[in-house]
Amino acid sequence: MLFQIDFKAGKPVYRQLMDQIRYAAAAGALRPGEPLPSIRPLAEELRLNRNTIAKAYAELESQGIIEILPGKGCFLKENGTPFTKGIRQKLLLSEIDEAVVTAHHLQVDREAFLAMVKERLDYFERKAAATHDENSKTSPRRTP
């Protein structure tokens, strides 16, 4: 998977990596059992401190999103997140708030905003379905 780091985003770099991995998992760009890039080549490619990447992976592991198998690498976990529904919704809330504030600045009104959210949900569903179809057509399902 490809990463994009923005030092001006106001978000720590390890958080950016975490969010992009979560985004890739939600979009189907990264499927359960698929390996994440190894730390060293990724650090070289992004010219990031390897500790930053190790920290992102360690946090994702503690959140139950990936698993780190010593000597094998890091893999997206089958069962997603172990958080309870309440905690998951709370985590999402701050991101929604951010989008709401941005919408306000850009003078996107309530109806248009909600329509866009729906449109994006549909988009990700279509995309996940498409990659799943492609996967089952071209290659037998991979086991982690």
Binding site: V13, R40, R47, N49, R50, N51, T52
Partner: peptide
């Protein structure tokens, strides 16, 4: 840096800060 990571410390003096931005913690 990828060797024995606990014991690999970098101390860099530079003017080209943007190039080292991702490396510096």
């Amino acid at each position: 840096q990828s060797g024995d990571t606990e014991n690999r410390t970098v101390f860099v003096s530079t003017h080209l800060i943007s190039e080292f931005e991702g490396l510096i913690d």
